[in-house]
């Protein structure tokens, strides 16, 4: 670590079973902060998740009405048509709270079940509000990386998945 440990909150731990369950159950993802620029991490994650069969709806007021990877971009969560299983937040930690509160407001209307904050994005207070409202919250993780890690692809580029198992993987 090259930062004093005191300044960082303790790292978050999520059971593999929880994360794998979320990735298995979720079908529709609203990606807040999705970028049309292909070298941006959000664009990477969106392309990957589309490839894995998820419906990914980009939310970004700066690009509303345009398309990213052939998906219509909406200005804000409330405008996304139909239900949303998971809100995936690609915004700075300081902006996450407002998005989480909006997701809590829309929870019943949109049938939102999970809020996921990207790698490096964390707001413990807002997460507590969302959990109190019955939402599952995962912070400081990337769904692309977690999908790759738990379903065997991440080790292909030398990443330590932490998975130890003698079971034959399902094709």
């Amino acid at each position: 670590m090259n930062q004093p440990a005191e300044t960082l909150p303790p790292p978050l731990h999520y059971d593999d079973a929880l994360v794998a369950g979320v990735l298995k159950d979720v079908r529709t993802i609203a990606m807040v902060g999705a970028s049309p620029n292909w070298v941006r991490p959000s664009n990477f994650a969106m392309k990957y998740l589309l490839g894995k069969g998820y419906k990914v709806i980009p939310v970004n007021p700066g690009h509303a009405g345009k398309e990213i990877w052939e998906q219509m971009v909406y200005a804000e969560l409330g405008e996304v048509p139909g239900p949303i299983d998971m809100v995936d937040v690609f915004r700075a930690s300081k902006d996450a709270g407002g998005i989480i509160d909006r997701a809590i407001e829309l929870k019943d209307e949109k049938d939102i079940k999970v809020i996921w904050l990207q790698l490096g994005v964390r707001d413990d207070a807002a997460a507590a509000r969302a959990e109190a409202a019955g939402l599952t919250v995962i912070m400081d993780r990337c769904p692309k990386i977690e999908y790759g890690r738990l379903f065997g692809e991440l080790g292909w580029c030398g990443v330590n998945s932490g998975v130890i198992s003698a079971k034959r993987p399902k094709r």
Binding site: L18, N160, V163, I164, S165, K167, R168, P169
Partner: peptide, 28 residues
């Protein structure tokens, strides 16, 4: 939806010998 629960005693840590044999190498 899976329930969020962190095991009270944290995740199981496999020993060095186990990881020397299994890490990275599931059956084909």
């Amino acid at each position: 939806m899976a329930e969020k629960k962190t095991a009270p005693d944290g995740p199981h840590e496999f020993g060095f010998e186990t990881r020397s044999i299994h890490a990275g190498a599931r059956p084909d």
